[in-house]
């Protein structure tokens, strides 16, 4: 069965999916979309794939999915038999809670980046303020995790909660949101970047 990813290299949301595909060692077809300046994600052909006109989208056999978080859940559910990335025990709810946070509050960091890097018209001050508020929530959580001797958002090993959260924290500088105030997030990002099969993307420096 072929997996096709409708992808844009510079999208942090697409990057989430590429990270998990890599961690799982899955091969896939990349359908490269001209997101900027071509707005191909708003073309009639792509709206057939995702009526919301957003990237990424994923086709897996007959199944077509949109939303990076849903795609992560699908891939982990189907291809990660031992539940390493999406545990099916008492950790499941906790993982899902942080996955939703990554697709929700953390997207303020994405908005600030779209404003600064691609010239989107939006309230960048509000986006930055809300992104900082979200970063604080995760910073406080990771501080408590550090004190408990843990490195990852949930449990003892990385999960899709870490994958979903990483891109828009790592890329936040592009939206004018620095990492200076978040020492626990910096430690966590360093550990994440040292994972086996991790790969960088433009905006996330290659060297750790």
């Amino acid at each position: 069965m072929t997996i096709t990813l409708y992808d844009y290299t510079l999208s942090g949301s697409c990057y989430k999916v590429r990270l998990l595909l890599n961690f799982l060692g899955l091969s896939y077809d990349r359908r490269q979309m001209n997101f900027y300046p071509g707005r191909q994600h708003k073309s009639p052909e792509f709206l057939e794939i995702n009526p919301l006109g957003q990237l990424p989208a994923l086709q897996d056999g007959d199944l077509i999915l949109r939303d990076a978080q849903a795609i992560l859940c699908h891939l982990a559910n189907k291809y990660d038999a031992d539940g390493h990335w999406l545990p099916r025990d008492e950790r499941f709810g906790d993982v899902m809670m942080w996955v939703m946070f990554a697709g929700g509050e953390l997207m303020n960091s994405s908005a600030a980046r779209l404003h600064d890097a691609l010239g989107y018209k939006l309230d960048v001050h509000a986006a930055r303020t809300n992104a900082h508020a979200a970063f604080r929530v995760l910073e406080d959580h990771m501080t408590a995790r550090e004190i408990a001797g843990r490195k990852w958002i949930v449990g003892d090993t990385p999960t899709i909660a870490d994958i979903a959260s990483f891109p828009y924290i790592a890329l936040s500088g592009e939206g004018g949101i620095g990492h200076e105030d978040y020492p626990a997030l910096r430690n966590w990002m360093r550990d994440f970047r040292r994972l086996d099969r991790f790969h960088a993307m433009p905006g996330v420096p290659e060297f750790v």
Partner: peptide
């Protein structure tokens, strides 16, 4: 054209981190 644009944009964003810092 899309491939070429994306290649150049990727290069550009790799530099942007440097330039803004």
């Amino acid at each position: 054209d899309g491939d070429l644009i994306e290649f150049q944009q990727s290069i550009f964003l790799q530099d942007r981190v440097i330039l803004e810092n």
